[in-house]
Design a binder for these strands. Structure first.
Lengths: 168, 168
DNA sequence: TCGATTTACGCTCGACGTAACTATG
DNA sequence: CATAGTTACGTCGAGCGTAAATCGA
């Protein structure tokens, strides 16, 4: 089973015709015809009833179409996300170590923004990685815990980061 | 982008090694290596950082992995549904014409079984198709409206259906 | 040097397009 | 006979495996 086959299936179902689907997808009718046929063989069912005036979904085909749409929708979302010049999903990324208070704060924010169109990412990682995530704009916020014991180490890490070439 | 590529990606991420993923999927390392590489080029990002001790996900890769899992999960559901000997999804299928009362009754049942693991299918079709759906076990229930005007026609349809060869 | 990935290379199968064939109204 | 889908066939590329090269600890 291929994403390609599922896309073909959907186009045919929406067009009501293999011919029309082929034109819409800029490919040959035979190509789609064979793709659909092999899908039918693989799943052991008849998706369309063929006639000389086009095709119509069988009951099995209608059910399959639902599943196919689910798969292809997810795949399209993925591609849209990484498409050239595609608007990246609006998101808030945070890098922190595994501190209870940071996780709790993060969860609070997520809860408050439920149903919003933002994406939230929490990265739990090492101190140096946190600094670098923020430096390279991979994360919007980095949470560090500063105390007397690690003060010198952290300041060294900050100084080192400042010396590095700009991330872009 | 291919389902194959996404499956490879997931296996590698879970194994932490291209080698291990290759063994798990019974394919060659070079195969997976190239597949991942082409996926990275297509999406313009670095998914893994390679080392001589295996691979680890980048931040971009971690995010992508989420999307990939969504797609592949849906695809696996589809395949499981039609797999040979696979247990078909428990479901209730009804064939009826577009009568308000039948639709209402159907919706009631669906509402009452919300969150259950059943699948509900309502087919709105023609009288003869309804009869045939039930005859061939495509639907569990067929709803017909009988009155003085269509009595003769329906009885004829029933008689005809009885004459047909068994559907299996 | 060992253990991992990458690259090189040849093979094979599948996807594709052109075109001939079939069927139905 | 017009318009759909199917089948036949040749081409080309992608995916595959073997094996050599590379890189890092």
């Amino acid at each position: 089973m291929t994403l390609q086959q599922l896309r073909f299936l959907i186009a045919v179902a929406e067009s009501g015709s293999i011919n029309a689907a082929a034109q819409r997808l800029y490919t040959a009718q035979s190509n789609i015809s064979n793709a659909v046929k092999s899908l039918e063989q693989e799943l052991h069912l008849e998706i369309f009833t063929r006639s000389s005036r086009g095709v119509t979904l069988t009951n099995d085909g209608t059910e399959l179409l639902g599943y196919a749409r689910q798969v292809v929708e997810q795949a399209d979302m993925l591609e849209a996300r990484y498409e050239d010049g595609g608007t990246p999903q609006a998101r808030l990324a945070i890098s922190a170590q595994h501190y209870a208070f940071s996780v709790e704060a993060f969860v609070n924010v997520v809860e408050r923004c439920r149903d919003s169109k933002f994406e939230f990412i929490m990265r739990e990682t090492t101190t140096s990685q946190i600094i670098d995530d923020v430096r390279a704009f991979r994360s919007d916020i980095g949470i560090l815990y500063l105390d007397d014991f690690n003060a010198r180490v952290l300041q060294k890490a900050f100084a080192d980061a400042r010396e590095l070439p700009p991330p872009l």
